[in-house]
Computed example of a mutant assay.
Amino acid sequence: MSLVNTKIKPFKAQAFKDGKFIEVSDADLAGKWSVFFFYPADFTFVCPTELGDVADHYAEFQKLGVEIYSVSTDTHFTHKAWHDTSDTIAKIKYTMLGDPNHEISTNFEVLRPGQGLADRGTFIVDPNGVIQATEITAEGIGRDASDLLRKVKAAQYVASHPGEVCPAKWQEGEKTLAPSLDLVGKI
């Protein structure tokens, strides 16, 4: 079953952000756009390339009012240790959630049965806590922060322009569509 158009489930977790340990809960998301960026584990291979890519685009997400939450089943202590020992991870300014009890990974249905690791899952959550987009990739397939940014802009556009939709490859400022009987079979 798809999680699109469902409300996120309550959670509470410890996180590492800006050199500090903080607590984050679903209540902290209220009224804001959010991205949950799940990955299998700290100190691995594809994961730091993805997290570094998101870090490189973080300022752009912030300009859109979007908070990024990276999530693995590691602890917030492990996130700090990785941040302190990797130049790539040291760039991260967004929140790194620890999920050692698997609550968040289970809530978002990305926990790998019997492994204790999360799949590569990306979730765009609107200010009402409703999931607007998801992407799940296999272990060896890294994600692209530029495309994630494009999808966030499309989700925000559609949310603020009822009756309009964004076609494939839509970029900010490009033409949208207004679904109607007149368009059926003409695209």
Rank of each mutant, 00 (worst) to 15 (best):
R150I: 07
W82K: 01
A118V: 06
D56T: 13
T49I: 09
K153R: 15
P127Y: 05
D42I: 05
I187G: 04
V130I: 15
Q115Y: 08
V46L: 00
Y58E: 15
A133Y: 13
K169T: 06
S146T: 15
K20N: 13
S34E: 07
L183T: 08
F45H: 05
A59P: 02
D87R: 06
P40Q: 12
T137D: 04
M1T: 13
F43I: 06
V165T: 12
Q115C: 00
F21V: 03
R143D: 02
T95E: 00
Y58I: 11
N5I: 03
E174C: 01
E172I: 05
T106Q: 10
D84W: 09
H76T: 02
F123N: 03
K32G: 00
M96W: 02
A145T: 05
L148W: 12
Y69N: 07
L111K: 05
R120N: 09
N5L: 09
D87F: 03
R143L: 06
H102I: 05
N107G: 13
D84V: 11
D18T: 07
Q171Y: 03
T6I: 06
D84T: 09
K175E: 14
G185L: 08
V125P: 03
F37L: 13
C47R: 01
T49V: 07
K32M: 04
P179A: 09
N128L: 07
L64Y: 07
L97P: 00
N101Y: 06
D87Q: 12
S180N: 12
H76P: 00
A27Y: 00
D126N: 15
Q132V: 09
F77C: 04
S146G: 07
N5G: 02
T95W: 01
I89D: 04
K186F: 08
V66Q: 04
A59R: 11
R150P: 00
A138I: 03
P162Q: 11
V4M: 05
T88R: 14
